[in-house]
Write a protein that binds this DNA or RNA. Structure first.
Length: 521
RNA sequence: GCCCCUCUAGCUCAAUCGGAAGAGCAGCUGACUUUUAAUCAGCGGGUAGUCGGAUCGAAACCGACGGGGGGCACCA
């Protein structure tokens, strides 16, 4: 089937409302139930019986409070206290103990806070207690009403006088006392979120970091925009794109690999402090630091350069660190317990200078390619595209990068690998570009943006030549973008930062842990 | 794209040499009014990822395919 036919099949299936389909679905359902395990069938039967009465999925419940608030309101009560305060709370049953005439359960709410509930024969009566034992399972959402007390062991509890199933769970919860396997954690993240505090924490940590970024931008008068994800022509980075097809126009479209060329069009139009936080897609390998779809921040500042944009980047990250750190400092605590101090002014090192120092031999943009090749060969480095600049970058990654630990701006890159960047104002053969390395990986990159449309066109032409020579990551000539540039783009500093990688730097976790629902086959 | 490892109950995992598929949790039945991974007695639960092969005999050995993990290549 071609892609078009597949899409057509999907769109027309909704129109086919034939009885044959309904029968097929019913048969599939029946087969599923028959094959389901005992626990599923038992719960399904409970759902049926609940629906004969109050219902297994009531539309609303008389909640008076949330668990976290109840806990906060009744701190440090002595054991066996009766407060005289009554609450109605709901949560997921994560713990269940039945001891004859008294039942203990623990309810957990979405933020992970828990409270114990006690259902006693003497309080609710024989019929209600029997129903509770019959219908309530681990994993169900449960509403309870009752007095806030502490148990004989001092556990804060709701002494139930009324209860109701808030939502019946048909599948059993995974064991709470064992780690979920890596695959289940990612594939069924909702279970991971229920069971593992760290997974739940990541959601909030990420949200805090991202809102901190937005707040920092707002402080400095930057405006957030959204530029196209579907593009006729992709550009702004060297990467292989995903391709899709638009039926109405009958054209292939690319999922964007970077927003850069659109944000620069915005600059031309006078949006002088502009940023975007959104997804990029790159059709390349996936590993612990690369995801095929990843959240990207790009920002452009008119009348700035790579120094001002570096200062902005440092502030963005330090503010984000403060937003997520436990004590509001710029020192963050990683999942492995180590602490990482991101405060202060981060050092700059030159790419050529640091490489020269590392190998004890002067390397400059004038160093002959043969000499670089000899060095690369000696170090066992293979360079796919034998450009001068690629050799320099590969050598640098081999000899200098492993030693970087503290946040460091690595600056002044070779011209031929940075086609959208401005020549250095005084050093020949290099561009005004930096990469920010933290803990050995590249977190952000910044530039003094190229504003000369004639030079920009020359760079595109060179890229097109490489594309013709078989480099499928090289850029194509974007005439529409060049036309915009020809109207005059103000001098600007620009930067890009991976949001997922920012979270990695703040938490010490792998990229798949920072992404709520990473791609799984 | 290439190489290595892996897939067993709802979840997490065992099983000496190829010789009758197990445990903990949870589930079912029963007991228990203060449990915190409760306890006690009893009981179910498996197309061993899928398909094929060698063998008297396979969860285990071989092959293909699929899922997952790791490494290499690639990675503005």
């Amino acid at each position: 089937m071609t892609r078009n036919q597949e899409i057509d099949a999907v769109t027309t299936s909704e129109e086919r409302s034939g009885a044959a389909d309904a029968d097929a679905v019913a048969a599939a359902d029946a087969a599923e139930v028959a094959e389901a395990n005992e626990q599923y069938r038992v719960r399904l039967a409970k759902r049926e019986r609940l629906n004969e009465g109050a219902g297994a999925y009531p539309v609303s419940l008389p909640i008076t409070d949330v668990i976290a608030h109840v806990r906060a309101a009744f701190l440090d009560l002595p054991a066996d206290t009766h407060t005289g305060e009554f609450v109605g709370v709901a949560g997921r049953v994560v713990h269940l103990r039945v001891t004859g005439k008294l039942v203990f359960a623990a309810l957990q709410s979405g933020d992970g806070s828990r409270i114990q509930v006690m259902v006693s024969l003497s309080e609710v009566g024989e019929e209600s207690l029997a129903r509770f034992k019959e219908f309530v399972d681990l994993g169900d959402h449960l509403f309870v009403h009752g007095e806030v007390i502490t148990s004989k062991r001092g556990e804060l509890s709701v002494y139930v006088d009324d209860w109701q199933i808030a939502a019946k769970a048909l599948r059993p919860l995974p064991t709470l006392h064992k780690e979920l396997s890596e695959e289940t954690r990612v594939r069924q993240r909702y279970l991971d979120l229920i069971v593992r505090d760290q997974a739940r924490q990541m959601v909030y940590t990420r949200a805090k970091a991202v809102s901190s970024l937005r707040a920092t931008f707002a402080d400095r008068g930057f405006v957030e925009v959204e530029t196209p994800m579907l593009q006729i022509q992709h550009g702004g980075a060297s990467a292989r794109p995903f391709v899709t097809h638009m039926n109405a126009y009958d054209v292939d479209l690319y999922l964007r690999i970077a927003p850069e060329l659109y944000l620069k069009r915005a600059l031309v139009g006078g949006i002088e402090r502009v940023f975007e936080i959104n997804r990029n897609f790159r059709n390349e390998g996936a590993d612990s630091t690369h995801s095929p779809e990843f959240a990207m921040l790009e920002a452009y500042e008119a009348y700035g350069d790579y120094h001002t944009i570096a200062e902005l980047t440092q502030t963005l990250i330090q503010n984000a660190a403060r937003a997520v750190s436990t004590d509001g400092s710029e020192t963050v605590t990683w999942a492995d317990g180590t602490t990482h101090d991101y405060s202060g002014t981060w050092p700059w090192i030159g790419m050529f200078e640091s490489l020269s120092e590392a190998i004890g031999q002067q390397i400059t943009p004038e160093t002959p390619v043969e000499e670089l090749k000899a060095l690369a060969d000696a170090a066992g480095i293979e360079v796919a595209h034998p450009l001068h600049g690629k050799y320099v970058e590969e050598l640098w990654e081999h000899f200098v990068k492993p030693g970087l630990d503290r946040p460091t701006f690595v600056c002044d890159f070779p011209v031929d690998t940075s086609p959208l960047t401005r020549q250095h104002r005084s050093k020949p053969g290099v561009v005004e570009k930096w990469d920010l390395y933290i803990r050995g990986f590249e977190l952000a990159t910044g530039y003094s943006e190229l504003a000369d449309p004639v030079v920009q066109r020359e760079r595109f032409v060179e890229q097109a030549r490489q594309a013709a020579a078989g480099d499928d990551e090289a850029m194509h000539i974007d005439e529409d973008f060049l036309r915009a540039m020809e109207y005059g783009m103000p001098p600007a500093g620009g930067m890009g930062m991976g949001i997922d990688r920012l979270l990695m730097a703040l938490t010490g976790l792998g990229i798949r842990e920072t992404i709520l629902f990473p791609l799984v086959k």
